[in-house]
Amino acid sequence: MRLARLLVPALAALAALPFQVSTGQASSSGMEWKVFVSGQGARLTATSVRSFLGSDEVSRSIRFSALCNPQQPVPYLTSAVALRDRNATVPARHELRIVMENNGYISVVGDLDRIATANARDNVTRYSFPLPAVSIFFDLLTRSNSRIYPIINAGSLGAGTRLRIRESDRAKVSQFVQACQRFGPQGAAQQRSNATRPNACRDYLNGPNPYNNNEARTYSPEVVSRVCGDLRMDVRPAACMHYVMSGRVPWNRQGGTNWRPGNAADLCRESRSPDSRLSCFGRQINSGATYSAAIEVCRGT
């Protein structure tokens, strides 16, 4: 099971900007934010711009982008990652951490975006992942006078992207977020709950299901608690739940896929590796185990 990789052609076009290499010393640098909104979609970009002493040359490289449209209202984010070892094998999927204030973070699984990486032509790897428009991440980017800038960190793989933003650019992020909310049902209840304690897992769970035509449903607090547990800032348990509830996972040998939310929540509870857990569950079912027994066996995967 993979997280939905949508909007790849648009991301590729977005990243296809020239990058110039200079041997001079950088004299100034900054992050340039741009937003484009139409009835067909919305696009947000943050471009690193550098100028050099004694030269008119300017280098530009898109470090971050986000896209949404009526077919995929959940923003699809792409972030640059500077590898520590350029000779190392780059994993197709890697855990990223979006570091917030007080060292809190959102944990997501990014998919290697080969097209955006190649088209950017700056020798910097890029990973992509979905993240709800109603989330602490976008809230931090739009918060007035905040001096805290999110960092999309790749951990042991390499340095990530620090999203510095000027006060005048926060309105561009707000414009993007509002467009994505118009494109799909984020849910008034989701917005109200997000205004209290940040919970990326809950927000993603109560948002559109990318595996079921972006249909959204609001789960009871009990179900949310069973799915997310202590992983409030990790969307992987919610992604597992979306996949199961989309009717793609048989719960018996007869092929039944109509899951009760409580049972699906038990299967996906605090899952840091949905692929492994669902594969384990499938093997247990095929061997003749009941769904409850299979859930118990696979709980640790």
Rank of each mutant, 00 (worst) to 15 (best):
I148N: 15
L7A: 06
I98P: 01
G229A: 02
A293E: 13
T78Q: 08
P185W: 14
Q186Y: 15
L205V: 07
A82C: 06
C68E: 03
N119K: 15
V227P: 00
L53I: 12
L6C: 11
D266Q: 09
L163N: 06
F183S: 06
P185Q: 15
S65D: 09
V8Y: 01
A42S: 10
W33Y: 12
D203Y: 00
T117E: 07
F36A: 13
L7W: 02
Q72G: 08
A13E: 15
R60Q: 14
S287I: 00
L267S: 01
R217D: 10
T125C: 01
R93T: 13
G30E: 12
L112I: 00
V37H: 10
L231F: 07
P150M: 07
L205K: 00
Y291T: 11
C68P: 06
T161I: 02
P221W: 02
S128H: 07
I136G: 06
F176I: 09
Y149P: 09
R121I: 02
V244P: 00
G247S: 09
P130Y: 04
L131Q: 04
F64D: 04
L141W: 03
P75G: 09
A189K: 13
S55E: 14
V99T: 11
V124M: 08
A195Q: 12
A188Q: 15
I285C: 04
V21K: 15
K172N: 09
S225G: 10
N103L: 11
Q71S: 15
L231N: 04
I285G: 04
T290D: 14
H242I: 10
N263F: 00
R164T: 12
V37T: 11
M31W: 05
C240W: 03
A66V: 08
T47Q: 08
M233W: 04
V297S: 12
L267A: 03
Q178T: 11
P198I: 06
V35Q: 05
V49F: 09
F176P: 02
C228I: 00
L6R: 14
N102V: 05
T47G: 04
D113T: 01
G262K: 10
D111K: 11
V81P: 02
S156Q: 14
A216Y: 01
D85G: 02
R43I: 12
N194L: 11
L17G: 14
C240S: 08
N103G: 05
I115P: 09
Y127E: 05
P18Q: 11
T290Q: 12
E167R: 08
R248N: 15
S287T: 07
G41K: 09
A92I: 00
M233D: 10
F176L: 06
L96W: 03
G288R: 05
D234N: 14
Q40R: 15
N212S: 14
R299K: 14
R260V: 07
S146R: 08
W251E: 05
H242K: 07
A264S: 09
I62D: 03
Y76A: 07
S55P: 09
G110Y: 02
